[in-house]
Amino acid sequence: MAEHIGQRIAARRRARRMTQADLAREAHVSLSMVKACERGVRTPGASTLEAIAAALAVDASRLDTAYTGTSRRVHAALPAISAAIAGYEFALDPPQGPLSRIHSEVDAAVEWRLAAQYGLIASQAPRLLEEALAHLHRADRRCEAARLVVAAARAADAVAYKYGAHDLSARLIDVMRWAAVEVDDPVMSATVAYVQAETFLAARAHRAGQAVLERALDVTPVPRDDLSAATLGALHMRTAVVAARAADPDAAYGHLSEARRLADRIPEDIYLGTAFGPSSVRIHEVALAVSLGRDHIGRALDVARDWSPGDGIPAERRSGFWIEVARAQLWSGNPDEAFESLRTARRHAPQHVRQHPWAREDIGTIRRLKRADAASLTAYAEWIGAV
């Protein structure tokens, strides 16, 4: 079986015109691992297979037909993540390694989050959380340790939130808020407020979420550098979408305009684990229009007609863009275009698409409308769990 998996990896890699070194870099695995897998000398484990599949923009089951997906492994890891933060306010065990090592490991987890590699995060999150918290309780460099706690908790939260463990997600956000307060860092607090919006989105408490985010904007300092400008801009960007869900178009477009003004002064980049810049604002313009409903989808379609996010944008955000575009296309009476957009979203971040409720809902609708194309639509619907 390993030889067949390796052959599929190599064939897909060549089809995408990637070298083995390219694949190793994109998958965050060693070059020797890629070479060994392709030769059939090693069988990739579940997390390695998922990482390679994400880098090749396919679902892992395309490489290993016996692969059963990430869901079981993720759900098995959730209790360990919960246990890792159960006593977060208290100093328990001492750190097991230097701060520099946990720093590099948390940085890798941030990259996995941006690439929607949830299986990889789930396998490492409990240990990363325990180590980051241990350093915060004992470190002289408390601000750096606090940032690591926030980043590790945010990576774990991506898994909890996407897989429906919303109570655990809320507790992880509490850990983030506590760490930001511990070092009195307003920029970090604004970043945490950005993530906290998930709590209100999950509960569909959009008006309350808008109020909380706008209060966070009021206390966020005036930007003095790219980092603080990006943090404030991202918060405006998130508030715009929540305001749109709260059916407040004036506030939504006002916050989007503020985000765009701040984005125009800085390059597109990753700031404290959040992508921000002109392209990210444009992606959120589509999300805002779709969130406001059918009367606003023309704006989303106009953006998608002339522009699409490039590879410099994190895979999860690129995937989200195409999911939003698919919904606008479906609402406008173009199920064929919507299906193609969902297929594009899957190529960018299959694990993200598979857990996205809109993608599952919309593929079911498209399948009902397009029974003549039942084979390809059914295959996608079965993959995403819509049938």
Rank of each mutant, 00 (worst) to 15 (best):
T274N: 12
T274Q: 12
T274I: 08
T274Y: 12
T274M: 10
A275F: 09
A275C: 12
A275K: 00
F276C: 04
F276E: 00
F276N: 00
G277P: 02
G277A: 09
G277N: 02
P278A: 14
P278R: 13
S279H: 11
S279G: 08
S279A: 14
S280N: 11
S280Y: 05
S280F: 03
S280A: 13
S280P: 02
R282Y: 03
I283A: 02
H284G: 01
H284L: 07
E285G: 12
E285L: 08
E285I: 03
V286Y: 00
V286C: 04
V286M: 04
V286S: 00
A287V: 03
L288R: 15
V290D: 02
V290R: 01
V290T: 14
V290Y: 02
V290I: 10
V290A: 07
S291T: 08
L292D: 03
L292G: 04
L292Y: 04
L292Q: 04
G293C: 09
G293V: 11
R294P: 05
H296A: 14
H296D: 13
H296S: 14
I297S: 00
G298V: 08
G298N: 12
R299T: 14
R299K: 13
R299C: 06
A300N: 05
D302A: 15
V303K: 02
V303M: 07
A304I: 06
A304N: 06
R305I: 04
R305L: 10
R305H: 15
D306Y: 11
D306C: 09
D306I: 11
D306Q: 11
W307G: 08
W307P: 07
S308A: 13
S308Y: 09
S308W: 06
P309L: 07
P309E: 05
P309Y: 08
D311M: 07
D311R: 11
I313E: 06
I313A: 08
I313C: 12
P314F: 05
P314Y: 05
A315R: 12
A315S: 14
E316F: 04
E316K: 10
R318H: 10
R318G: 03
R318A: 04
S319H: 00
S319I: 00
S319M: 01
S319A: 15
G320P: 01
F321D: 02
F321H: 07
W322K: 01
I323M: 08
I323L: 09
V325N: 01
V325F: 08
A326P: 03
A326R: 00
A326G: 13
R327Y: 05
Q329R: 15
Q329D: 13
Q329F: 03
W331N: 06
W331Y: 13
S332R: 15
G333K: 15
P335N: 14
P335E: 12
P335F: 11
P335M: 14
E337Y: 09
E337W: 06
E337V: 12
E337C: 12
E337D: 15
A338E: 04
A338L: 13
F339W: 14
E340K: 14
E340R: 15
E340I: 12
E340T: 15
E340V: 15
R343D: 12
R343F: 05
T344L: 09
A345K: 07
A345Q: 07
R346V: 07
R346K: 08
R346T: 13
R347T: 14
R347H: 11
R347G: 11
A349L: 06
A349N: 02
A349Q: 01
A349P: 02
P350E: 06
P350H: 07
Q351K: 04
Q351G: 07
V353C: 08
V353Q: 01
V353P: 00
R354N: 10
